[in-house]
């Protein structure tokens, strides 16, 4: 199947230095924060690719680069064969842009409180001079709200309903790709279920492709066709949900899965994970996970592992085979 989104060696570095004068007085060097480091993946058409990771893992930064809100420092994002950051043909850029939409985490902050819902939803089409007659009403019904709601303001809706309005707005320009950045994190469980079901239905109905960004492993497992696990801006493992959840091959994925609360974990005594995510300004040499990794060997401190195929997954770990064997032993025990 053809890849709709193709991300190659994507890197984003932020300059987080203090102002020039402070640096001169304190004699401090520039501080560079590598938010995303050499990430490559493909999203085939009509699939859901999920990026999962803890805070600071760079998942939202990748999302922003995919939609073009940030330019990559290095590497490329190609959507339907067009690299938005380098393409010079304005028509081509415009066509591709209208194929991309985004749904944000906070449905309270992402809707203009002074606009009526009708105008909010029609905006992506109106901005390109399209025909918006009856569009908002039709979309509202598709996302499970009433056509009369078009005349209301955002404050008249609950969190779940607002997220439905955000989804309706994202659908307005008939996009192919929707980047969803933590779309249900601000919602209650029962409302989350409604929104996730709606997103699955719409995907089937309109043939959408999702880049689904979340920190919630259970949501990701439910939604994704393929999952990329991020750690400190690096893709450490990529696999389909069954493979990842049943036999995670990277020690970080293993740690993350073991730490996630389970519904049948009554009185479970977990050995809590050691340590915390290191400072992204001075990441550890070699594999970024080596200070917390139970399997680390000297090689892990010297050489950054490349993604390679291990047992049905792509894993960036020198010791993936040992990690897999260890995971099997833990399951047997």
């Amino acid at each position: 199947m053809k890849a709709l989104v193709s991300v190659r060696n994507l890197t984003r570095i932020f300059d987080v230095s203090k102002p020039w004068l402070n640096r001169m007085i304190e004699r401090k060097p520039k501080a560079m924060l590598t938010a995303v480091s050499d990430v490559s993946f493909d999203i085939p058409e009509r699939e859901v690719y999920a990026l999962v990771g803890e805070s600071g893992s760079g998942k939202s930064t990748i999302g922003k680069m995919v939609v073009g809100l940030l330019t990559p420092s290095e590497g490329t994002v190609e959507i339907a064969g067009v690299d938005l950051a380098r393409e010079t043909d304005a028509d081509k850029i415009e066509t591709v842009r209208s194929d991309i939409q985004m749904i944000f985490q906070d449905p309270f902050a992402s809707l203009n409180p002074r606009w009526k819902v009708r105008d909010i939803i029609a905006e992506p089409v109106a901005a390109r001079g399209g025909d918006t007659a009856g569009l908002s009403e039709k979309l509202l019904e598709q996302v499970g709200l009433a056509a009369e709601d078009a005349g209301k303001f955002p404050h008249e809706f609950s969190g779940g309903q607002r997220q439905r309005i955000c989804i309706a707005r994202a659908l307005a320009s008939e996009p192919k790709l929707i980047v969803c950045d933590e779309p249900t994190s601000a919602l209650d469980v029962s409302v989350q279920a409604q929104v996730l079901n709606l997103m699955s239905d719409l995907k089937d109905e309109f043939g959408l492709t999702y880049l689904f960004i979340s920190h919630d492993l259970t949501v990701v497992r439910h939604m994704a066709d393929k999952i990329g696990v991020l750690y400190l801006g690096r893709l450490v493992e990529e696999a389909d949900p069954t493979t990842l959840f049943e036999r995670p091959a990277h020690p970080y994925s293993q740690m993350l899965l073991a730490a996630a609360p389970k519904m049948d974990g009554f009185g479970r005594e977990v050995v809590p994970p050691k340590g915390e995510i290191p400072d992204p300004i001075n990441p550890p040499p070699g594999c970024a996970f080596n200070p917390r990794c139970p399997l680390a060997i000297p090689l892990c401190r010297q050489e950054r592992p490349e993604l390679r195929d291990v047992d049905g997954a792509r894993v960036a770990c020198h010791r993936a085979e040992e990690a897999l064997a260890r995971g099997r032993d833990a399951n047997d025990a």
């Binding site: 469980v189 029962s190 279920a193 409604q194 996730l196 949501v219 497992r221 439910h222 519904m263």
Partner: peptide, 16 residues
């Protein structure tokens, strides 16, 4: 039923 945790493997979540 509506937590994704419980309805593992089902295509749709049960919703209230």
């Amino acid at each position: 039923g509506s937590t994704p945790l419980a309805s593992r493997g089902q295509r749709r979540l049960r919703q209230i």
